[in-house]
Simulated assay, not measured.
Amino acid sequence: MAKFINWKRNWLSSKIELFVNGIQKGAIIFSTWRSDAESIFEDKNYFFTNVGFWQSKTNVYDKKTNELIAIITYDSWKSKAVISMKSGEQFEWKSTNFWKSQFVVSNYKDANIIYNSSSNSGSISSDTDDSLLMITGLFIKQIYNKRGAALVACFVPIIIATTSRHH
């Protein structure tokens, strides 16, 4: 059964709100200084916590049982990620256009979730009812957004210093 979700991001609160038929059904709330997040969607509640110095992996826990239910492994060079479920099934997250405004989560069999985004909002079209996968795709997008912003923040001072030296 197809599922359609709209989402919007609130810049001030680091929160993504999720809407089904115009009614808010959930949210992803990011920690202020870290990339960890808690999500609530319909009756599901997940916690995403990043692991390691370079945060190349995220563990996903079911908040109700504290059980590790998925691991996300990032490939920073290719803007791809692999979602490994507790069941052993794997899904790939990847951007489908240059601007990273469209991305997909798929197992290349029977589960495909397509995301479209603009700066602060977007939509999700899913042929699976798996709320964990739908939420995880948005979480990964935010991780790559934060990494991109951090990269820009690191290089802008270098570029400014280099160009101002020549004037």
Rank of each mutant, 00 (worst) to 15 (best):
L12Y: 10
E17C: 08
K94F: 11
K86F: 07
T96S: 06
P157R: 06
S123C: 06
T128C: 07
Q90A: 07
F155C: 11
A27S: 15
K78G: 03
Y61S: 03
D75M: 03
F98Y: 14
V156G: 02
S56N: 14
T58S: 14
D127S: 13
K80C: 01
D43N: 15
V82Y: 05
G26T: 03
L132P: 04
L133W: 02
S14C: 06
T58F: 07
S39T: 07
N97W: 09
S56D: 07
S101M: 08
K80H: 06
G26M: 01
S121K: 09
I83W: 02
I135T: 11
D110N: 15
F19L: 09
G52V: 05
Y74M: 05
K109C: 08
V20Y: 12
K25E: 10
Y108Q: 13
D110H: 05
Q24Y: 05
R34I: 08
T32D: 14
S131N: 12
Y144I: 03
M85I: 05
V156M: 11
N10Y: 08
N10H: 09
S121D: 15
I83H: 00
Q102A: 08
I143K: 01
T49N: 10
I114K: 11
M134K: 07
S31P: 00
Y144K: 03
S164V: 10
I71C: 10
V152E: 09
K100G: 06
F4Q: 13
K64G: 00
F155D: 04
E17L: 05
I158V: 15
L138P: 00
E92Y: 03
W7K: 00
N112Y: 12
V20D: 09
K109Q: 13
